[in-house]
Nucleic acid binder design. Sequence first.
DNA 1: TCTTTATTTGACTTTTTTTGACCTTCTAAT
DNA 2: ATTAGAAGGTCAAAAAAAGTCAAATAAAGA
Lengths: 152, 152
Amino acid sequence: MSSLSDKIEKYLRNLIKRYEGEVEIKRNRLADDFDCAPSQINYVLDTRFTVERGYIIESRRGGGGFVRIIKVKLTSENEAMKNIIKQLEGPIKPKEAKGIIKRLHENNLIKKRDRILIEAAVSKDSIGFENDDKNLIRTQVLKNTLKAIFKS
Amino acid sequence: MSSLSDKIEKYLRNLIKRYEGEVEIKRNRLADDFDCAPSQINYVLDTRFTVERGYIIESRRGGGGFVRIIKVKLTSENEAMKNIIKQLEGPIKPKEAKGIIKRLHENNLIKKRDRILIEAAVSKDSIGFENDDKNLIRTQVLKNTLKAIFKS
DNA sequence: TCTTTATTTGACTTTTTTTGACCTTCTAAT
DNA sequence: ATTAGAAGGTCAAAAAAAGTCAAATAAAGA
């Protein structure tokens, strides 16, 4: 009944548990074990091991390549960060964005420099073209920069 | 299973540490030890012991030849790069943006974290809505984040 | 059923590493 | 001064992985 993706997810979760939050796999090897297309591994990674769920993916191509899955330790800080990222949806206006960033900084979730940078990125000045999607783009930029911080 | 290049890198790093930042090897001898083509040593040197990472390579051919790896302190901002920023105009595609950011980082004008953040901000993922102005928005975001950094 | 969402597959792309053939430079012996 | 042999350098092809994207199926909801 459970899909193949579910099985792969389960398998990986077990591995991660066994290896204390960090595991390295060979994508093609794993695909072979589960007898599926390699890109299915990516699908599982993209849908189940996301930042929102507290995972970071690193990888390398070429000889000796790998995919590494890291379970982020949930301190209250990055737990909070995760939730905030999860909740960033729909259009966000410049002022709202600024408010969000301000609070993140005040709560020590991002550094001063991060704040300056992200504020600039989502400012009216940056994303100001008269354009239907601009507030949605702003949301994406905000979300992705925060994710980047989470990952680093 | 890390690649052969990784192993060679590791070996060399250890040597360098042991000999306080400077070490001399025989390329062919080393290649022989690792059972690989001599040019692979060059590959490792070119990709892992670069100037950006703070290494200088010296060498001599012929009898008694050698390759010397020296770890240096990386210095000196490149003023010229600031002009490049000034010249950021017109639509910029995701890959171009990535290249620009990479160079800024390699020239020590922005920190690693800045790079990661800005890359996230201007990524296809952030500014990817099917939209005529997206590459212009990207330019603005890039420009404004960089300005923000220089002001700080 | 009909429509929407999630999964599976596969062709094609990009990145990174490995290998090898050929080139250049240096030392030392003639 | 010439030259053989010893190093190291270059460059590009082949191989090894992983990534992307979209079409085809399957499952879930209305």
